[in-house]
């Protein structure tokens, strides 16, 4: 394990040699979140639905006395929705929005581990031929032969609806 710089944790892309992430599975793909942004992992609980919420917001959950919205990134990424399984988890992350931090729960199909992605393996997102909007992706790393897509949380939560921009673009 390489030594990790403690400055600018939220940025994640340090000039150190590794990026510490939490890998998780969504659909058949493996995504990664910067571990600095992850607050904790919860077991799947019953969600309190919120009427009038945006489509990717699945409901509310109580995390140690705080009401936290839970979103489904698969809706955001236009991936097919799946029913929760035994491995489904809610990953509580900290999102800095409009200058203030807030907590958001992300529905994941499974949580793999906390690991480090070496900086050398990270590559920029190719501009063509991608399923997802490249804005939401910070980098693509490799781990054990699989691609690990490192999500850009700030970009995701700053956008409006599920694929809103992409839909309005054409």
């Amino acid at each position: 394990m390489t030594k990790m710089p403690d400055s600018n944790v939220t940025d994640g892309r340090t000039d150190g040699c590794a990026l510490q992430v939490l890998t998780l599975g969504l659909g058949g793909e493996i995504f990664a979140l910067e571990s600095a942004q992850v607050r904790e992992v919860l077991d799947m609980v019953e969600l309190t639905e919120v009427p009038g919420a945006r489509s990717f917001v699945k409901g509310l959950v109580n995390v140690r006395g705080k009401v936290v919205p839970v979103v489904d990134l698969k809706t955001k990424f236009d991936m097919p929705a799946l029913p929760p399984t035994e491995d489904s988890r809610i990953v509580v992350i900290e999102v800095s929005r409009n200058g203030e931090d807030s907590m958001v729960g992300v529905l994941t199909d499974r949580v793999l581990e906390v690991t480090e992605l070496p900086q050398a393996t990270l590559e920029d997102v190719p501009r063509v031929g991608m399923t997802w909007q490249p804005d939401f992706i910070r980098a693509i790393g490799k781990r054990d032969g699989d691609f690990v897509i490192v999500m850009d949380i700030a970009a995701i939560f700053s956008s409006e609806g599920p694929g809103g921009r992409r839909k309005t673009q054409p």
Partner: peptide
């Protein structure tokens, strides 16, 4: 075991957040 796993995961996250101290 599952709960333990979850706890361990959270512990790992906490450790990661703790940075060098949580190694």
């Amino acid at each position: 075991a599952r709960q333990t796993d979850l706890l361990a995961l959270n512990a790992a996250i906490e450790a990661a957040r703790a940075g060098e101290h949580g190694k």
